[in-house]
Design a protein around this nucleic acid. Structure first.
Lengths: 255, 255
DNA sequence: GCCAAGATAATGTATGTACATTAAATGGCG
DNA sequence: CGCCATTTAATGTACATACATTATCTTGGC
């Protein structure tokens, strides 16, 4: 039955549903199927991939429980809207964050340039010394109720996100724009406590050396990075929040 | 076939495998089945619960992918070891953390008392004013290579963990002891940047007001809290690290 | 032209069966 | 006694089938 089209014949030895899951996931994170897109019905997908409905069901159920798809009876199966940024660590798009506090939000662009970075700048983003193409450098301030709330310093990789170069980030901050524009991403966060430097203190209206939370986030698509951002929050004001059950990474059981 | 024993007849209307999953999970988080315990084989469990092997397989597969169980072919199915603390946010048991850096580790107990807390102390743990039973109050320092690395301030709820009262936390820090002792837990983390207070600065050998990461963690079993701990790390030294794909909390798909 | 009742099309759940995979247990042979 | 081949007991995967559930669509009555 399963007649293996030429394209799928490549990677063998994984399980059947794992392979199919990967194919579908590729369409989602690659942006071929955009958020909201309704995919073919289960039975058709099963037929197209040459598997039984049960197997396709397993794939779709998994993708749904992982948050890539949303399924509704009778209506069909849809590509999910990107969850702002990790439901786990509640670092939401900053505008949402402020809105959640019931305060008015404003964004102010400070710099937008396609340029190379200085050594210290590169170090601040954890970027290597070598791959030094010109990048889109951005900086801006987020205000809540007219008080500066977060200083954002960002680079965008123009080779993975060329559209960003022509975009004007005056009206809309790059975070939410990227969220809308770039398909699916995974992110890495690093959190530290730092004292406000001279310019941070200036922008955030703090005394120098006030403790601040620094969040460094690297966002990637499949294999190259899209953007790196450093967010500096006045320490006491902001807090991260995370909740866990025992989950992920199956532990070793003793014999 | 499914003759519904008196005990299981209680909660109806959930799906079959959800109910069975809940029953098994209860044995795990309740501690009836301890970490490392080998559970009956799939076919027996299926028979005992009056369902098909496939259904039981679904339950066990899910619990395994959620990290409660570990399954090995031929060997059987085992209750997983509690994953130190959230594989997600890599806040591991502190000794592991230091070991990962390849440094020698030492723990030094400062205080261990069954007593009531002062108002400010309670506030520091985010505890309410009312429920003010006497608690086990602990404080101690973690050293890496003979440098103080983290100041730990903790309360343990004696009503959920009575054994802790008689335990001597001189040799072993309470974090890892609890990890071994208390069955399964979920945790809530709050992260802030603070300036070192007078006593923190003293213990950690810092100048007052040095930026520090403060991690407040509340650990719970099913419905009451077990312990609350405040960990204060010198800012630059420590960093949290978290990696995400899009996951959890299925998003709404547009129609 | 509106509303309600029923049909329908999609996903959701459960079962039975078959065979694959793997690592432990076993047994025989040197 | 120890090693290697074989058996076997457990989980892992895939398929076919049946029926349940539910939101949408359709149809018929007024």
């Amino acid at each position: 039955m399963n007649h293996e089209t030429a394209t799928t014949a490549v990677r063998a030895n994984e399980t059947l549903h794992a392979r199919i899951k990967a194919q579908i996931l590729q369409k989602i994170i690659g942006g071929t199927w955009k958020p909201g897109y309704r995919l073919p019905v289960e039975t058709d997908l099963a037929r197209d991939h040459g598997v039984s409905r049960m197997t396709m069901n397993k794939v779709l159920t998994q993708l749904s429980s992982e948050g890539y798809l949303v399924r509704r009876k009778k209506s069909g199966t849809f590509v999910a809207q990107p969850r702002s940024q990790s439901a786990v660590l509640e670092i939401t798009a900053i505008a949402d964050e402020v809105a959640a506090l019931g305060q008015s939000y404003r964004w102010e662009l400070i710099e937008q340039n396609l340029r190379c970075l200085s050594g210290p700048e590169r170090a601040g983003f954890g970027l290597p010394e070598d791959g030094a193409g010109p990048w889109l450098a951005l900086r801006g301030l987020h205000f809540a109720a007219d008080t500066p709330f977060c200083l954002e310093t960002r680079v965008i990789n123009p080779s993975t996100c060329p559209k960003a170069v022509d975009q004007d980030f005056g009206p809309e901050p790059p975070g939410s724009w990227l969220l809308r524009t770039v398909p699916w991403t995974s992110a890495t966060h690093t959190v530290r406590a730092v004292g406000a430097g001279t310019d941070e203190a200036g922008f955030l209206v703090l005394r120098k050396n006030t403790p601040c939370l620094e969040i460094l986030r690297e966002t990637r698509t499949s294999d190259s990075w899209v953007t790196r951002v450093r967010l500096v929050y006045p320490g006491g004001v902001h807090q991260l929040f995370a909740q866990f059950g025992p989950q992920l990474t199956p532990a070793q059981a003793s014999k």
